[in-house]
């Protein structure tokens, strides 16, 4: 949640992604997604039009679309979330496909 003074301008419709220098992206990130500090996208994972807040992690071969992952939230390997909002430290177990629009409370695990 710590920040730094913003310095450059971009329109809110801009489809470019934002990758924090401390993020680890080994997958495919597109659609204007934002990867905050210490977030991780594993090998062959896909993140589209989504926000990964600080420390959020997406496992290998997982898919995240139109979703927001709160700080420390985890989508484990092979899972799929669409239109979801995951609270801080929430976990989606490996291989699970969440119903579109699902919200998980902070610390909740499914």
């Amino acid at each position: 949640m710590t920040g730094r003074a913003p310095t450059t301008a971009i329109t809110i419709e801009d489809p470019r992604c934002l990758i924090h220098p401390d993020a680890d992206n080994q997958g495919t990130v597109d659609g204007g997604s934002v990867l905050d500090a210490r977030s991780v996208v594993g090998p062959d994972a896909v993140v589209t039009s989504s926000v990964l807040m600080a420390g959020a992690r997406v496992g290998a071969r997982a898919t995240v679309i139109d979703s927001v992952l709160g700080p420390g939230a985890v989508v484990e390997q092979g899972a799929t979330v669409t239109g979801a909002a995951l609270g801080d430290d929430a976990v989606v177990s490996a291989g699970l496909t969440l119903a579109p629009g699902t919200k998980l409370a902070c610390g909740e695990r499914v």
């Binding site: 920040g3 730094r4 003074a5 913003p6 310095t7 450059t8 301008a9 971009i10 329109t11 809110i12 489809p15 470019r16 992604c17 934002l18 990758i19 924090h20 220098p21 495919t28 990130v29 597109d30 659609g31």
Partner: peptide, 18 residues
């Protein structure tokens, strides 16, 4: 209508990779 966001310079900005 319309707005702009100021963004941190250090972050990389890139187009879709595929």
């Amino acid at each position: 209508t319309g707005a702009t966001l100021a963004l941190p310079r250090r972050w990389s900005r890139h187009r879709p990779t595929s």
